[in-house]
Simulated assay, not measured.
Amino acid sequence: MVDVVCCEDERYVCGVWAYGKRDTASGRRVHDRNILLDPCQDPVPELVEYVGTVLEATAPEPTRPP
């Protein structure tokens, strides 16, 4: 999960998280925690760059006054 806030054409990455999972007694895998990743370690820089590319490609056109 990449936590990003966008405001006034600026983008701020708040954190990149991995999901932790575990097996229950019945054998099912369940999500049980989020793990904050080091911003300098792989794959964090690549994920941040990818998310930036996606946000730029899908950003709406600026609203112009009539």
Rank of each mutant, 00 (worst) to 15 (best):
G20T: 02
V5K: 05
C40I: 05
D32M: 02
E10S: 12
P45R: 15
T53C: 06
Y50R: 13
T63C: 08
H31Q: 13
G15I: 04
L36E: 11
G27L: 08
L37P: 00
A18L: 05
M1H: 09
N34E: 13
R11S: 11
C7R: 04
V44C: 08
D38E: 14
D9Y: 07
C6P: 00
K21D: 12
P60Q: 00
L37G: 04
T24P: 03
Y50A: 06
P66Y: 13
N34P: 01
Y19S: 07
D9T: 01
P43F: 12
M1C: 02
H31G: 03
N34R: 09
V30D: 01
V4C: 04
R28M: 04
D9I: 01
E46A: 15
V2Q: 00
P60M: 05
P43A: 11
Y12T: 14
D38H: 14
T58W: 05
P45F: 11
V5W: 01
H31K: 10
P43E: 11
Y12D: 12
V51P: 13
E49W: 05
V4K: 03
Y50N: 02
D23P: 01
V51D: 09
D38A: 09
V48A: 12
V5G: 01
M1K: 09
P39Y: 00
A59D: 10
D23A: 13
T63R: 13
R28H: 13
P65L: 15
I35A: 00
L36P: 06
Y19K: 14
Y50V: 03
R22Y: 09
R33D: 07
W17T: 08
N34L: 10
D32N: 10
E10W: 04
R11T: 09
A57K: 14
G52I: 02
A18C: 02
E56R: 07
G27F: 12
D3V: 10
V54I: 11
T24Y: 02
E49N: 14
P60K: 03
L36D: 04
V2K: 01
P65M: 15
T58R: 15
R28W: 04
C6R: 10
W17P: 00
P60T: 00
D38G: 06
D23S: 03
C7T: 07
P66C: 02
R33T: 01
D42H: 11
R22L: 13
M1R: 08
A25Y: 07
Q41W: 04
C40W: 06
C14V: 06
S26P: 02
G27S: 12
V13C: 10
G52M: 01
E8I: 01
A59Q: 15
M1D: 10
V51G: 08
Y50Q: 11
D3A: 09
E61F: 15
L37R: 06
Y12R: 13
R29V: 00
V44I: 05
T24F: 06
D38L: 07
P66I: 04
D38Y: 12
